[in-house]
Design a protein around this nucleic acid. Sequence first.
DNA 1: TCCTTATCTTTACATCGTCAAGATTAGGTA
DNA 2: TACCTAATCTTGACGATGTAAAGATAAGGA
Lengths: 240, 240
Amino acid sequence: MGKSETAPNPRTPKKASSAAKAQARPARRRTATRTETPYHHGALREALLQAAERVLERDGLAGLTLRAVAREAGVSHAAPTHHFGDLTGLLSELAAIGFRQFNAAMASACDAATTPLERALARPKAYIAYAQAHPGMYGIMFRTERLDYSRPSLHEAAEASFAGLANAIGMMRQEQISEDALTLNQGAAIARAWSLVHGFTMLLLDGRLEDILERMPEGTTAERLLEAMLTAPLAPNIPV
Amino acid sequence: MGKSETAPNPRTPKKASSAAKAQARPARRRTATRTETPYHHGALREALLQAAERVLERDGLAGLTLRAVAREAGVSHAAPTHHFGDLTGLLSELAAIGFRQFNAAMASACDAATTPLERALARPKAYIAYAQAHPGMYGIMFRTERLDYSRPSLHEAAEASFAGLANAIGMMRQEQISEDALTLNQGAAIARAWSLVHGFTMLLLDGRLEDILERMPEGTTAERLLEAMLTAPLAPNIPV
DNA sequence: TCCTTATCTTTACATCGTCAAGATTAGGTA
DNA sequence: TACCTAATCTTGACGATGTAAAGATAAGGA
């Protein structure tokens, strides 16, 4: 596609889109109509984040570049810099959004559960369901190396995710889990639950579980395998 | 560092390094000494893979580029193309090497174990030990999206890794695990073991377990947490 | 000895992240 | 209201990357 990088700003007008035509825009003639594409966007930061989410869903992790996001939002390639600093900044803010979506999905799944077994399975199921529905977002959150957890939004969202996990483990073990002190068994339980579901999800998204699924009784889905993994009895005298 | 990309090939002479000096090499005068830097490397493929491993250890995943590998090996930036096709090819061959190292480490750890408990813990411990010792390599194997499993070397090495896991699970369960048919419980056991250790390793390498480790009894190491995670009794009536 | 082919270099191109400088406008201040 | 500072956005440039094409060089068989 010829789509030259230096083409005039094709941002779509937000309101009063009428009478906005035949604008060759030779160099930059503004202050007249004002309805076409204002120099100042007004809410570019949010627009960029939404554009990034679209690009991520459309082109995957590899296609998510600063310039692609700027193109998708219809601004110049350097516009994101002012709002996010650099690529790490954009990815971090996007990851924060992902964590919030993620937490919300697990919380609502948890609320809908009634029996103890349902409650125990609700979070893991919601976990992999979110990852399968938004693999790009999950990759931003857990696969990328370029994340800056010193950013408050990301730090808070990730912290909330961890707190939700710890809380769920506490509920299952029917004991209070303190904020700043964990027993060995408590830490082990949290690490086990997190590792299990996170590892399963990574392997699933990477297609590494297909070998297993193919060799299992036909019709075995990933969700069924997850359920079996979480509930199947352990062999005697064997810790894992 | 001025290190111009077009500087004359600085490959170090392999043997007979004497009498190889004062070579301004104005344009390309070869066929005379032959001891300096032959146009044909002779074993460039292996040299590139070793260079890639060095670059990976030195500069991490982000620094591992085709051109950096070529520089490290002292050849032109397009030389790797002929041997690996593209970046995916190089990464895939490197990942295959990683899987072989990985399998060897786990196998030897397994052989050294005597008691059943040791045998059960030997593989997981060797798994995270390898990942901690070679985080770059582990990243190539499990974090990169650019891997081509249709390459025979990578396919075989990854398959061997999986077979080793399935075999270990079979030993622990004291049952034969067939090549092409898995019961639900067998598949669940394999998925559980793999997910647990893989997830734990990813979280550990990403620094996401530090929050947990800090809050646990002081002196708790990652290895201790792993051990507890694998052996701590599960709470009653709770599957996870 | 010659010639085909594999190997390696050179050159070029599109794309990327990032920086610096300029253009434009919003919003407070007189 | 008029101005002015600062925020916002664009333009242009730079070095780095992956990849393709074309040329140079040497290896190995005919």
